[in-house]
Amino acid sequence: MRKKRATAAAKAAGVDGMLIAHLPDVRYLCGFTGSNAVLAFAGGRATLFTDGRYTVQARVEAARTRVMIAKKPAVVAACEWLETAGVRRCGFDAAHTTVAGLEMMRKALSAKVRRGMFVAVGPLVARMREVKDVDEVKLIRAAALVGCDLFEGMLTYLEAGLTETEVAATLEYAARLAGAEGMSFDTIVASGERSALPHGRATGAKLPKQGFVTLDFGVILDGYCSDMTRTVHIGKALPSERDVYDSVLEAQEAAVAAVAPGVTAGEVDEAARSVLRRVKLDKYFSHSTGHGVGLEIHEGPRLAAKQTQVLEQGMVITIEPGVYMPGRFGLRIEDMVLVTANGGEVLTPSVKAWIEL
């Protein structure tokens, strides 16, 4: 079904073939998970090109797709096959094709078809991937719940004096024990003044006796990512710190409440941003409100100011406003949210209320 949809999308884009080299797109369309693959479409047929390391794996994982084990670069073999199959306008995703890669593709063709063969058609498969099917939602939900369990476990572990790297290592070890294939991205542990860094990856800095600790992490299960952020406070907080936390939580919950099919990504962003604007904290919110999640940690849609893309049922997005005050502190609260017919369903239901350790 996915390959048929990709073929239809290529036809609508005005091409009679397609070359797909971005590995998450390849996996989405045929199930292959190896590190070297190109999927080529011609005349409604799809052929997977890879190398001899994956002879058995490819035929097992891509059982419903023709597999060719190439003795030359997979992309070269794929381009030669496309020409032989009669393709004369082949679509490709320019966002994931380097200049050198495009030149290799062209050189693989004979001179008579080289000119005009490759046509940039945009991220057709990536757009398909934005709306998740039932099976994908099941996998993402499972990954999200593992993340929630990890956070709950960290609450009994966090204490002043631990280094951020110790915290990250402990969380990642627990993730592996829970069955994770790996982390969705480098775990963020940012504490004290470093909590004002939106992407403050773990360092040797020690957790403070009094201050915020932000944990931003995700796991990969069966290829699908999770993503969540929680911020806790060690020691007695100042009233001003609690006030900022409450404002960020209100902004986050307002954005979650705004999620629904037919709502634009920009409207969800504004729901969060308007809360922080009202309390004069919007200038400290320095990034977009969220993004799609799936086989990649960052997918479409992008939830940011003035984004006009309309949310659709089946999309899985993050809602993650934050406030970052350089030299003082910062905090972020993030959930994964499924767009349903009835609004947004939070997939990361662990506690967001104020926590003081």
Rank of each mutant, 00 (worst) to 15 (best):
Y245D: 05
I319S: 11
S240Q: 02
L338S: 05
A254F: 01
G223P: 10
P208H: 02
K280D: 07
E312R: 04
G204K: 00
M228V: 09
V256T: 03
G314Y: 14
D243P: 14
G314H: 14
S274C: 04
D269Y: 03
R302G: 12
E250W: 06
V337H: 04
L295Q: 09
L238H: 11
G266F: 04
G292W: 06
A272N: 06
V244S: 06
K283W: 05
V248L: 07
G294D: 07
G330Y: 04
A272I: 00
G290M: 08
V310W: 14
R273M: 01
V339M: 02
M336H: 04
I220W: 12
R328G: 12
G211A: 08
L276N: 12
M336G: 06
E320D: 10
E241L: 14
A304I: 06
Q210V: 15
A271D: 01
R230N: 05
L311T: 02
T308R: 14
T229M: 07
D246H: 05
E296R: 14
K206P: 15
Q313D: 14
V213K: 12
H291Y: 08
A257V: 02
V323P: 09
S240I: 03
G300P: 08
P239Q: 02
G235M: 09
E267C: 03
A237I: 11
R242V: 09
T264N: 08
T214G: 09
I317A: 02
A260K: 05
E320G: 07
V323T: 08
Q210D: 11
V339N: 04
E296A: 04
L311W: 03
T308F: 12
F217K: 13
Y324C: 04
D246M: 10
L221V: 10
L215W: 11
A271F: 05
F285K: 15
V263W: 00
G292L: 03
A271S: 09
T340C: 00
V263A: 03
H291R: 06
P261T: 08
K206Y: 06
F217S: 06
I297P: 14
Q307N: 10
P301K: 05
R328D: 12
P326L: 07
K280N: 13
P326G: 08
E320A: 03
H233W: 11
V232C: 12
I333T: 07
E320V: 02
E334W: 01
G294A: 03
L303T: 00
E312A: 10
P301Q: 09
I234H: 08
V275G: 00
G322D: 02
Y324F: 09
A205M: 07
D282F: 01
T203N: 09
S274V: 10
D282P: 13
E296L: 05
M315S: 07
L295V: 09
Q252R: 02
G294V: 06
Q309C: 13
S226G: 07
D222H: 15
V248H: 03
L238S: 11
T289P: 13
